[in-house]
Simulated scan of single mutants.
Amino acid sequence: MNNLLLYIPWQPDEYLIRFGSAGIRWYGICWLVCFAVGFYLMQWLFKKHRYSDKQFEPMFLYVFLGALIGARLGHCIFYEPGEFFDSFQHFVEIFIPIKFLPGGGWKFVGFQGLASHGGVIGLLIGLYLYIKRSKMNTWVVLDFMGICSAISAAFIRIGNLMNSEIIGKVTDVPWAFIFYDVDTRPRHPGQLYEAIAYFCIFAFIFFIYRKNPKKVGTGLYFGLCLALIFTFRFFIEYIKIDQVDFENGMLFNMGQLLSIPFVALGVWSIMRSKGKEYTEK
Results as ranks from 00 to 15, higher is better:
residue 110 G to Y: 09
residue 152 S to G: 15
residue 142 L to P: 14
residue 109 V to D: 00
residue 108 F to D: 07
residue 95 F to W: 15
residue 103 G to T: 05
residue 135 K to E: 13
residue 147 I to M: 06
residue 102 P to M: 07
residue 159 G to V: 10
residue 135 K to M: 09
residue 113 G to P: 15
residue 150 A to R: 02
residue 127 L to R: 01
residue 151 I to N: 07
residue 144 F to C: 11
residue 107 K to D: 03
residue 119 G to Y: 05
residue 129 L to H: 08
residue 129 L to T: 00
residue 122 G to P: 12
residue 146 G to P: 15
residue 118 G to F: 00
residue 112 Q to C: 11
residue 130 Y to P: 00
residue 151 I to P: 09
residue 111 F to W: 07
residue 150 A to I: 04
residue 161 L to Q: 07
residue 127 L to K: 00
residue 139 W to H: 13
residue 128 Y to S: 07
residue 143 D to C: 11
residue 145 M to E: 10
residue 111 F to N: 01
residue 104 G to P: 06
residue 142 L to C: 14
residue 125 I to R: 01
residue 153 A to P: 02
residue 102 P to K: 09
residue 113 G to C: 15
residue 161 L to D: 06
residue 142 L to I: 12
residue 117 H to Q: 08
residue 111 F to M: 02
residue 143 D to I: 09
residue 104 G to K: 03
residue 150 A to W: 03
residue 140 V to Y: 03
residue 100 F to Q: 04
residue 139 W to T: 12
residue 121 I to R: 01
residue 153 A to S: 08
residue 157 R to S: 06
residue 132 K to H: 09
residue 129 L to Y: 12
residue 122 G to V: 12
residue 112 Q to S: 13
residue 97 P to R: 05
residue 129 L to A: 11
residue 131 I to S: 04
residue 156 I to V: 15
residue 127 L to G: 02
residue 144 F to I: 13
residue 95 F to L: 11
residue 108 F to N: 13
residue 112 Q to K: 15
residue 118 G to T: 02
residue 119 G to H: 08
residue 143 D to N: 10
residue 98 I to N: 07
residue 144 F to E: 09
residue 159 G to F: 09
residue 156 I to S: 01
residue 145 M to L: 14
residue 123 L to K: 03
residue 146 G to M: 14
residue 125 I to Q: 01
residue 160 N to F: 10
residue 137 N to G: 10
residue 124 L to H: 00
